[in-house]
Design a protein around this nucleic acid. Sequence first.
DNA 1: AAATATTTTAATCAAATGATTAAATTTTTC
DNA 2: GAAAAATTTAATCATTTGATTAAAATATTT
Lengths: 210, 210
Amino acid sequence: MAKSKTAEKLDASTEEKIKEAARTVFHKKGFAATRTRDIAEEAGINLALLNYYFRSKARLFEIIMLETISVFVQAMALALNDEKTTLGEKVERVVTSYIDLIEKEPDLPIFMLSEIRNNPDLLLVKLPIKQAIMGSVFFRQHHEAVTQGKITEPSPIQFLMNLIGLIMFPFIASPMLKRIGDLKEEDFNRLMQERKRLIPVWIEAMMKAS
Amino acid sequence: MAKSKTAEKLDASTEEKIKEAARTVFHKKGFAATRTRDIAEEAGINLALLNYYFRSKARLFEIIMLETISVFVQAMALALNDEKTTLGEKVERVVTSYIDLIEKEPDLPIFMLSEIRNNPDLLLVKLPIKQAIMGSVFFRQHHEAVTQGKITEPSPIQFLMNLIGLIMFPFIASPMLKRIGDLKEEDFNRLMQERKRLIPVWIEAMMKAS
DNA sequence: AAATATTTTAATCAAATGATTAAATTTTTC
DNA sequence: GAAAAATTTAATCATTTGATTAAAATATTT
């Protein structure tokens, strides 16, 4: 009732509690499979309160989604735009920070990619993702390395696909991989930790091979 | 009404038409976001008929899902169990056949991986996926190559993650990649076709690098 | 502490959706 | 070609689910 005039005065902890619960449930089940009642229960509040704070499931989802993508892009953009690091160091940083991030929140990659597929325009138009990556120091350095013959594969998009794919795919496919390889949670995590060291080595070898 | 006694006599084309429509809609939207009415409309039949043939949305889904996973595993298992091909040739075949398959049905990977995540037990227990891959000729050859020092990375699971990830990830992330790289559908497809040649080269370089 | 503003909830609504039923239509059998 | 079986449909039910409302509870102000 007092929302529109005084949004800034509302207890932030309740609003944050709902958002936190929404993040958890949305990330785990995706938009379509999520019930607003699940979020309310997870947050320990009544269903009506959720709509009081966020008007609708769709609006709450959009807020969570934009924050989630933002975290992802930010982590990438920061590493890729450091003037002080070399190309190889950038790869190492991206690999390490993403593997640590995703190990803490394993649902993140498949959540993001599924929901982006369902609604690419809504979610990607709003973020300056293209500029943040294609205009980065990283891509300038990549281009220089190609010019100097240090890298034989000239497409930066191929580079990006390989880097992100090698990082994220195992997490996306983890239920299947655990089954195939008969891996416990800890076995799987050990493999992911090993990949922090391996992926930079692999990437370097790949980019000189084609 | 006459279903249970004479299932084998039902017109296969109608049943198949419904399954075909279900495949299309489920693959595109996933289980939770799919409405049985969407499937009926796609198939050009009435909603009740869908339940007459398949009893429920869940049962229809399970049939589609098992077939879909089966296609995937089969394609992999066939290539990996050929006694006549070398390790490198197997990689080439897997890469080529999967890229062609997925280019025809781009929703396949993310559909499979999302739904497996939602219900790993139901879907993976029923298929002898572990045995089909871990007991394959491919893995014997991989082990031999490691023993002979031709491959320095000893874990076949890391090998598998890299191979499948390099193939499937770009399709999973395609909406985002198209946006980042400013790629039209045809640009993207061209990159995927290039990867038929590139991935085997990359894989070889990687496996000798670590 | 009374008055006012803010926060929270229980109860309810309306639309969407999975499923059923009984009757109509078409096909097959004899 | 009449009877029986199989197929298809329109209409309807029951549950789920997103959203609203009006009132109760709590906090804040004066």
